[in-house]
Design a binder for these strands. Structure first.
Lengths: 66, 66
DNA sequence: TTTAAATGTAAAGTATATTTGACATATAGG
DNA sequence: CCTATATGTCAAATATACTTTACATTTAAA
């Protein structure tokens, strides 16, 4: 899976820590997701969706290895 | 979080086991998600999205407790 | 009513998400 | 050059997703 959270975050001009606080996770969680170190839960994806004002499918995509 | 996977599954006329095999998880995983016993990963949500031909936000929604 | 398929659920084990704390590096401004 | 802020990453601990096995219940069809 790949994501464009870094881009969405830039559009809203938020730091990783800002975003983490807004959706209620740790800064490392955001950093790890951006770095594709692990796959977030669907609740987390929906919270990002609400914050970004875009559907989950817009910033999370499946890749060959999924 | 709540979901309408049971409905989407009915539209495609698939059993829990059918759906499980199509997206590569166990039948109990599908059953547990439908019963809201746990929150699936975003990869699983995207696989359902591809199979259902609908965005994740169509069949997964945040609830007050999220 | 009996049988087979579908569903609900539980327990134990494994894999992985997420947290906390910590430290190192990068970067921009004074 | 300092200093503050942002980012990358790691290790240990905890929470939770997911699997397998197993069994009980429901449901539809013969």
């Amino acid at each position: 899976m790949e994501n464009t959270i870094k881009v969405e975050r830039a559009i809203l001009n938020l730091t990783q820590d800002d975003l983490a606080k807004k959706i209620g996770v740790s800064r490392q969680t955001i950093n790890s997701i951006e770095a594709n170190r692990y796959v977030p839960s669907t609740v987390l994806a929906l919270k990002l969706s609400a914050l970004f004002g875009k559907p989950v499918n817009d910033f999370f995509k499946l890749t060959k290895d999924d």
